[in-house]
Design a binder for these strands. Sequence first.
DNA 1: AAACTTTCAGCAACCGTTTGCCAAAAATTG
DNA 2: CAATTTTTGGCAAACGGTTGCTGAAAGTTT
Lengths: 340, 340
Amino acid sequence: MSTEPVSSSTRPATIHDVARESGFAASTVSRALSNPGRVNVQTREKILAIARALNYTPNSQARALTSGQTRSIAVLVSDITNPFYFGLIRGTQQQLKAANYLQMLVDTAESSDSEAATIDSLRRSADGAILTASRLSDQQLVSLSERMPLVAINRHVPGIPAVIIDTPFGIDQALDHLASLGHRRITYVSGPDMSWSNERRWQRLEKTAQKLGVQPVRTREYAPSLASGAAAAEAMINSESTACVVFNDLIAIGMLERFRERGVRVPEDISVVGCDDIFGASFCNPPLTTLTAPIERAGRMAVSMLLSRLEAGPDSPPPPPMLLPTHLTVRKSTGPARQR
Amino acid sequence: MSTEPVSSSTRPATIHDVARESGFAASTVSRALSNPGRVNVQTREKILAIARALNYTPNSQARALTSGQTRSIAVLVSDITNPFYFGLIRGTQQQLKAANYLQMLVDTAESSDSEAATIDSLRRSADGAILTASRLSDQQLVSLSERMPLVAINRHVPGIPAVIIDTPFGIDQALDHLASLGHRRITYVSGPDMSWSNERRWQRLEKTAQKLGVQPVRTREYAPSLASGAAAAEAMINSESTACVVFNDLIAIGMLERFRERGVRVPEDISVVGCDDIFGASFCNPPLTTLTAPIERAGRMAVSMLLSRLEAGPDSPPPPPMLLPTHLTVRKSTGPARQR
DNA sequence: AAACTTTCAGCAACCGTTTGCCAAAAATTG
DNA sequence: CAATTTTTGGCAAACGGTTGCTGAAAGTTT
């Protein structure tokens, strides 16, 4: 028995400390802790007792070195500032925690090259990554996915596992709703040109609108922020449309504010439909009619997908993209078309 | 020169691959990459070129093993669901990124023992931790801080570095504001009994109210969620008070909704002051008068504090708690007291 | 009781990097 | 040109675990 005090201020106990203290070899300690059947019950108990007494915690770095597994997953978001990600992060965190994984949250804010570089440097610290609204090219994504297991959210590239929130499906419902309220000219308030979702939403809107005999119009691009809602609102005021479908709730809520300042009544003068149903959409003024996306669920799904991918090995066939349905939540920002 | 194809699908290149390919020893490669002066310029360039060609990324696990540094920081939040943390996470992420650290985001949701256990298991994966609204006892916190560098947010325990948002300071402003509007009986809508901030807010409110000749009243505890705002609103309706200061914006916004449903006008019938100024406080209905907290800044500060603590070494004297001022942001949820 | 199995613990190599120490080579000095 | 100093690169030992292999001890089968 060593006579050294078990000071809590010294550096953490290693497996060797436990070995020395217990009189067994390090390898035996290792097995006692992680491979119970391989060791005598009594031996095991002695070792466990000592480990507990020493407050031993395995060093995950060292473990990762041999196992090649870090038990952590990187979650990359393009802009933490966007409330859309709140739900997503919540979802990934939940699921990762349940599977006993750690979440490394990374904001890629910058350009796409920095995004690629960031991921590369993460390649060794995480077992896999979840990418949201990636600015990477299809090409880059594919080459990246050869180097580390990936799941994309809201981005479809053949061969890359993905979770896709099927907003276009909801777009149809929104258009039905708007058309039945008598709107005949509907503006799509566009998000970033680079956004894959944005393009998809517009295309579906255009197509369905024509089917319904409604005239679709598209604005220039707006950054997804509360602030850019003001400009979007002005544009809307100057247009002929009586209703708009907005790229996301953030912009939509921003628009609502400006409308109020300008004395434009929603929904009497203009109807507004958002996308995503983020935190705030239910209590803004007026409460926003929006396409409710199962954001949290998307996060959870992405994690499950990634984790089962990790188990299956890199050579398993990539799973088909997972489509998550969206539905229209009617609140107070839509109403009968004004005659104009 | 090796003839093996540089396949991107094989596992990542190690320092030994670079060594073999370049004809130098692994130690030389290591130095070329991280200790430039220690190696011949030409050697260095050759090595760098090869490293680049091989797409070499140092294995951070292995590096951590020798250096003892992981270059990542754990950020523990008690409930990711709370929008208050959004700003915080944003702040920590910003600052960590700038310092080239990774953020491990952890939700401790559960009980306090699980919180302690979680931290212990993280002890080896992170160089330090930032705790928010920790449910740990003073005792536990101190013993923990002996094992790993810690910064607490909104929690003061002697000897533990902390960033504290000085809401009590703002409480005075809120009370002044309310008193000058003629309110003579003010209810404090209480948050969780366990919350250190909650207790502080109430105590200050009680004291200042008495100084101003206003009668302070305290409700039972409410969970910090939109949903519990409904019950809080009911309680408020049944009270004699004409104004309330609410533990946080989340509850306050929930109350606003219920007031509207019940036909209670804000601020004509009841004035409401929130705390924190979270996302949503500016556009709820009516926009919320609240104590604006520099949440993001708190996150950034906490990181700076932790990082400089890491540099200074564990034996450096703990820095004094950092107090961040708060101010009243008057919006539309407060007005003259109704005679009742 | 001999031969064979099974159980259990230890040895040693390995994972990918860093780093102290050493020695060969080059540069400088006398 | 010898002696001394400086550069520069390699060897080998960590760091803290895991794991294949080995062999002693114990248990089982004839």
